[in-house]
Design a protein around this nucleic acid. Structure first.
Lengths: 155, 155
DNA sequence: TCCGATTCCATTGACGCCCATGTTTTCCCA
DNA sequence: TGGGAAAACATGGGCGTCAATGGAATCGGA
C-alpha cells in the first residue's frame, strides 16, 4: 500500500477549494472513490484524513489503529458519524466543510501532514508549533530512545 | 537486502541537484519507488536517508502497540510527516529541498554516509569533524575495547 | 431566475526528462 | 604487465510537462 509521506502546505481560494497534494492523490488512486475521507480529530485541533479503503478496514475491525486503544473501540462509531467523503474535482481540489475548518482553525491555508497509512490536515502555523514541540521532546529523550526504531521481521 | 556502505562526497549544481552514489542506487533498485526517502535527523545536523521499503516496515511496526512505546510512536509520526520522497532523474540525481539543506548546513557539496540499512547525508566538513571525534573517542577507549571477547568473524 | 456547486480554461513556476561533456574506472588485448 | 578502448559515473544546461492556483463559464436545484 502506498504511504502518505511528507507535509504539504496549500492555499485555500475564495471559493474554499484547496489542492490535495499530487502524491497523496496517487496514493489514493487505487480506490474506486476518487477523493478523501475526513473527520475531526479527537486528540487535537486537526482533521484526520484517509482513503476509503482505510475506512473499510476500520469497519472490519481487522486492523489495529495507533490512534485508538482497544477499549476505545466505540470511538469508531463516532468516526463513521463524523466522516465525510470529499471527492476532488478534475484539478484535484476539494472543498473542506465549514465545521471542519473551524475545528482546525483553518482560514486561508492548510497543511497536509503524512502519517503513513493516514494523514492529517492542520492549520500550518499550528502544526509548526506541535512539530517543534515533538522534536524538542525527542531531542530531550535522546538518551532513552532508540534513535532509529528497530525493524520488525528484519529481512 | 543490500547495505549502504562507505562515504561518497558529491557536488550540488546550480539547480540544486546532486548525484546519489551509484552503489546506493543499486541498493535501492529493488523497490517500486525509484528514489530515496529523506528526513531531518532528530539528533544532529544531518539528514537521514533510506528506501521506501524501510518506511513501509516502519509503518507496519507503528501499528503494533507492542513494538513501539508512545514516545517512539510520536517519533514515527514525525518521521512520516517530515519524510520526503525524492525520486532521482534518469542520471540518478535528486534535488534536496531547501529546509533539508538548511538543517544540515549544506551549501555546495554533500556527503552520503552509509549506515548499513540506512544512510545519512552530511555537509562534508561537518561529517569530517564528527568522524574525527568518534574516531578519537574510540581510540581513547581502546584499552577497554581490547578486553572484550574476540569476535569470531573479526579480521 | 438566483444562488451555490461543479467544470473548464489559463497562468506560472517548479520539477522531470533529454542531450552533452569530462573524468574515472574497468576491461580487453598485445 | 602495460596501454588503449570502452563503459560507467558525476556533472552541466536547455526544454517540455505537470501541479498548484486563480478566475470564468456552465450546470443544477430551489
Amino acid at each position: 500500500m502506498a504511504l502518505f509521506l511528507s507535509t504539504f502546505v496549500n492555499r485555500i481560494d475564495k471559493k474554499g477549494r484547496t489542492s490535495v497534494p499530487a502524491t497523496f492523490r496517487s496514493a489514493l488512486a487505487s480506490g474506486v472513490f476518487q477523493g478523501i475521507v475526513a473527520y475531526r480529530s479527537f486528540t487535537g485541533p486537526c482533521i484526520e484524513g484517509c482513503g476509503m479503503d482505510f475506512m473499510e478496514r476500520l469497519s472490519d475491525g481487522a486492523q489495529n489503529f495507533d490512534a485508538f486503544s482497544p477499549e476505545q473501540d466505540s470511538l469508531a462509531s463516532l468516526i463513521f458519524a463524523d466522516a465525510r467523503q470529499l471527492a476532488w474535482d478534475p484539478e484535484g481540489r476539494i472543498s473542506l466543510p465549514e465545521d471542519i475548518l473551524a475545528h482546525a482553525g483553518i482560514t486561508d491555508a492548510v497543511a497536509f501532514v503524512g502519517k503513513g497509512q493516514t494523514f492529517q490536515i492542520w492549520e500550518p502555523e499550528a502544526y509548526k508549533a506541535v512539530e517543534a514541540d515533538i522534536r524538542a521532546r525527542a531531542l530531550a529523550q535522546r538518551p532513552t530512545l532508540a534513535l532509529r526504531p528497530k525493524i520488525p521481521a528484519g529481512g
